[in-house]
Computed example of a mutant assay.
Amino acid sequence: MQINQNGLDLIKQFEDCQLEGYLCPAGIPTIGYGHTKTAELGAIITEAEAEAMLKDDLKDAEAAVNQLVAVPINENQFSALVSFVFNIGAGAFENSTLLAMLNAYASATTVAAQFLRWNKADGQELPGLTRRRHAEQALFLGKDWKVYLF
């Protein structure tokens, strides 16, 4: 399964495209749409390079979701999970209560509530992460995630 347009749009809205390398709120060098693998502070890229990095990064997140989720899910659920994994990393997802509940056939509402537990960096709640988690939760439940773009 691959991310759908809703999931891609959600990621782009919350990652924002930065064409110069910077430190994210968690202190990690980042560039483009949240790319961290090869990001360096002060590096400059083009919009096309940012898009290519995003598509490459999403392959890793898609593969993680495809590998770790052991139950049937729909396109929006998959896409919400790809956004989530893209943001927190596959290792954190693999060890999450969210994944354990999903694979134990918990209800979609119960699983979706777990997104909101992942809204902190260095123990501090970040309003942008809270909005993103609400948007991912809404997409997971098949609701309008764009209401969280304020």
Rank of each mutant, 00 (worst) to 15 (best):
Glu94Asp: 12
Ser107Tyr: 06
Gly7Arg: 06
Ala39Lys: 10
Ile3Asn: 07
Cys17Ser: 08
Phe78Tyr: 11
Thr130Ala: 14
Ala135Lys: 00
Ile88Gln: 08
Arg132Pro: 01
Leu129Gly: 01
Leu68His: 14
Leu81Arg: 06
Glu49Asn: 09
Cys24Trp: 04
Ala70Asn: 10
Ala61Ser: 14
Glu94Val: 07
Arg131Asn: 12
Leu23Val: 03
Glu47Cys: 02
Leu102Arg: 12
Ala90Phe: 05
Val147Met: 08
Met101Tyr: 11
Asn95Ile: 04
Gln77Ser: 04
Asp144Val: 03
Ala108His: 03
Val71Asp: 06
Ser83Ala: 11
Ala113Gln: 13
Ile44Asn: 06
Cys24Asn: 12
Ala100Gly: 10
Ala64Leu: 00
Ile45Gly: 06
Arg117Leu: 15
Lys37His: 11
Thr130Met: 10
Ile3Cys: 11
Ala63Tyr: 03
Ile88Cys: 12
Asn4Arg: 10
Lys37Phe: 13
Leu41Ile: 15
Ala106Ser: 12
Tyr33Ile: 02
Glu40Met: 14
Met101Lys: 15
Lys143Cys: 00
Asp16Val: 08
Ala43Pro: 02
Gly34Cys: 04
Met53Ser: 02
Asn119Lys: 15
Ala80Tyr: 04
Lys37Ile: 08
Ser79Cys: 09
Val82Leu: 05
Glu75Ala: 15
Lys120Asp: 11
Glu15Cys: 04
Val82Pro: 03
Glu40His: 14
Ala26His: 02
Asp60Ser: 13
Glu49Leu: 10
Val69Leu: 09
Asn119Thr: 13
Leu116Glu: 12
Glu20Arg: 15
Asn66Pro: 01
Glu94Ala: 15
Leu19Tyr: 06
Leu141Thr: 02
Ala48Lys: 14
Ala50His: 08
Trp145Asn: 00
Gly89Arg: 08
Asp122Ala: 15
Tyr148Cys: 07
Ala106His: 10
Ala135Met: 03
Val82Lys: 02
Leu68Pro: 07
Ala135Cys: 01
Tyr148Trp: 14
Gly7Leu: 04
Glu75Phe: 02
Phe115Leu: 08
Ala104Asp: 15
Leu126Ile: 13
Asn6Leu: 12
Thr97His: 07
Gln18Gly: 11
Phe150Asn: 15
Gly128Glu: 04
Thr30Pro: 04
Ile28Arg: 09
Glu47Pro: 03
Gln5Gly: 00
Ala135Tyr: 00
Glu49Trp: 06
Gln18Asp: 07
Gln5Ala: 14
Thr30Arg: 07
Leu10Arg: 00
Val65Gly: 09
Ala100His: 15
Gly34Asn: 05
Ala50Asp: 09
Phe14Leu: 05
Gly128Ser: 04
Val85His: 08
Gln137His: 05
Leu54Gly: 05
Lys146Val: 10
Leu68Tyr: 14
Asn76Glu: 09
Lys12Asp: 09
Glu49Ala: 14
Ala90Met: 02
Val69Arg: 09
Asp144Ile: 03
Ser96Glu: 11
Arg117Ser: 15
Gln2Gly: 04
Lys143Ala: 08
Phe86Pro: 05
Ala112Ser: 14
Lys37Ala: 14
Ala63Trp: 01
Ile31His: 01
Glu47Leu: 10
Gln13Trp: 13
Ile3Ala: 07
Leu141Asp: 05
Val65Glu: 09
Ile44Phe: 09
Pro127Trp: 10
Asp122Met: 10
Glu49Ser: 09
Leu141Ser: 00
Ala48Met: 10
